[in-house]
């Protein structure tokens, strides 16, 4: 199996034998072998290193797994259908779609807020259905039509009616959640071109806005519905 040390290089993982049982709550985290649950040793104490590894994910991808996949596992080199184009990309078995889009395909319009299916910043469309790309493994969406905010652009660079409506209604404030809000709204309007305000509220309920621009976003969706 893949060795933990080749995955996150530079992190020293203590061996299970050095685990202690009597260090209070934190001290007992991460017992391997000794615990019936499959903890990963030492991860919490070296959390800072892990997180920086996470943020340089793109650059480190090559050194993350040097070993060939075990027989029968997925092939890493795959084709994805992104915004109508076929993109060849080398994808790790445990890579999320948000990671692939942002760090392999350069589509940074898709944001990562929580990386835990709890905010909606990473919303993309899979066959027209809104999905959290942070909580979807890339290998599971081969053969699906993936649409990101970059794919909304018209043939002459014009904005999508939802994007235009968001400008007209002063929808966003800081804008971080906006691509996700836009994608959720596009999915709604494609399925239901004239939603009620409550239907729009429900459809956008999986997208948090730290700035609290919810009403402006709803105004935008209702305007886009009328203009479409």
């Amino acid at each position: 199996m893949t060795d933990e040390k080749t995955l996150v290089s530079g992190i020293d993982i203590p061996s299970p034998a050095s685990a202690t049982d009597d260090g209070g709550v934190l001290g007992t985290i991460g017992r391997v072998g000794a615990s019936r649950r499959q903890f990963i040793k030492g991860v919490i104490s070296s959390g800072a290193a892990v997180s920086s590894a996470g943020y340089v994910f793109g650059g480190m991808a090559g050194c993350a797994t040097e070993e060939a996949p075990m027989a029968g596992g997925v092939e890493r080199l795959i084709s994805l259908n992104v915004n109508g184009e076929t993109r060849r990309v080398d994808v790790l078995p445990y890579e999320t779609l948000a990671m692939t889009l942002r760090y392999k395909l350069g589509l940074t319009g898709t944001k990562l807020g929580c990386d835990r299916a709890e905010c909606g910043a990473c919303t993309v469309l899979l066959d027209g259905v809104s999905t959290y790309s942070c909580s979807t493994l890339t290998h599971t969406v081969r053969g699906r039509a993936i649409r990101t905010v970059e794919g909304l652009e018209g043939p002459n660079g014009e904005l999508h009616p939802v994007q235009q409506a968001m400008i007209d209604e002063l929808g966003p404030q800081c804008g971080f959640c906006t691509p996700g809000q836009v994608m959720a709204a596009v999915a709604l309007l494609e399925a239901n071109p004239s939603p009620t305000r409550d239907e729009a509220r429900f459809a956008l309920s999986g997208n948090l806005c730290r700035c609290g621009a919810y009403d402006h976003y709803l105004n935008s969706v209702m305007r886009a519905a009328q203009s479409a």
């Binding site: 080749t6 997180s51 943020y55 994910f57 993350a64 596992g73 078995p93 445990y94 990386d115």
Partner: peptide, 14 residues
């Protein structure tokens, strides 16, 4: 604390 980097696993698609 961010712990977003998953440990490597092998993926099978039966």
């Amino acid at each position: 604390m961010s712990k977003d980097m998953m440990r490597a696993f092998e993926l099978y698609q039966p």
